[in-house]
Simulated assay, not measured.
Amino acid sequence: MIQNNVLLEKTLDFSVRVVRSYQYLIKEKHEDVMSRQLLRSATSIGANAREAVYGTSKQDFIAKLHIALKETSETEYWLILLQRTAYLSDRQAESLLSDCLAIKKILISTLNTCKESST
């Protein structure tokens, strides 16, 4: 189930991009507080998605994906804030936001499918 899992691949790739953005923000922009928050929330998305795959029950799976979805929303917030405060350029932020939105759509779709199959 881990191999060829689109959600896990996208979240890992996104985490790598955010880690690189964090390094840029620290070194080039000397911004520590918001970038650390971004790093935490963005990397948590993939960690929770991966935990969901190994969940002990369907309810555990759904709970972990809900946490990942919440972290996605928080990540969007930090990206928008970093963009509005000019720490990230529009191009940088929009690229990351696009990836974040794609992950959000997958999470919502997966959660909806799980809920439908439960009824």
Rank of each mutant, 00 (worst) to 15 (best):
Ser44Gly: 15
Glu51Thr: 04
Arg91Cys: 07
Thr119Met: 12
Leu97Met: 10
Asn4Asp: 14
Gln37Phe: 13
Ser35Tyr: 14
Thr85Met: 08
Glu94Val: 03
Asn5Gln: 07
Ser44Asn: 13
Arg84Ala: 04
Tyr22Met: 04
Leu88Ile: 01
Lys115Trp: 13
Thr11Trp: 09
Ile67Gln: 05
Met1Asp: 11
Leu97Tyr: 01
Tyr54Met: 06
Thr110Ile: 10
Leu79Asn: 08
Leu12His: 12
Gly46Met: 10
Ile45Gly: 00
Leu97Gly: 04
Thr72Asn: 03
Glu31His: 04
Thr72Val: 04
Ser35Ile: 14
Asn112Gly: 03
Leu79Asp: 11
Val53Leu: 11
Ile62Ser: 03
Arg40Phe: 13
Thr43Arg: 03
Thr72Pro: 00
Gln23Ala: 05
Ser98Met: 10
Leu12Gly: 00
Ile45Thr: 01
Phe61Tyr: 15
Ser21Trp: 12
Glu74His: 02
Ser89Val: 02
Lys10Val: 06
Phe14Tyr: 15
Ile106Tyr: 00
Leu101Asn: 06
Val19Trp: 14
Lys105Phe: 09
Arg36Ile: 07
Asp90Cys: 02
Glu116Gln: 09
Ser98Leu: 08
Tyr24Asn: 07
Leu82Thr: 02
Leu107Trp: 00
Leu7Arg: 06
Leu69Asp: 07
Lys29Ala: 09
Gln59Cys: 00
Leu79Tyr: 11
Leu97Asp: 06
Tyr22Ser: 04
Leu82Lys: 02
His30Thr: 08
Leu12Ile: 13
Cys100Ala: 03
Ile67Cys: 00
Arg40Cys: 09
Glu31Pro: 05
Glu28Leu: 01
Ala47Gln: 05
Glu74Tyr: 03
Leu69Cys: 07
Ser21Gly: 09
Ser15Phe: 11
Phe14Asp: 10
Ser35Glu: 07
Ala47Phe: 04
Ser57His: 08
Thr119Asn: 10
Val18Arg: 02
Leu97Cys: 05
Ile103Ser: 00
Leu107Arg: 00
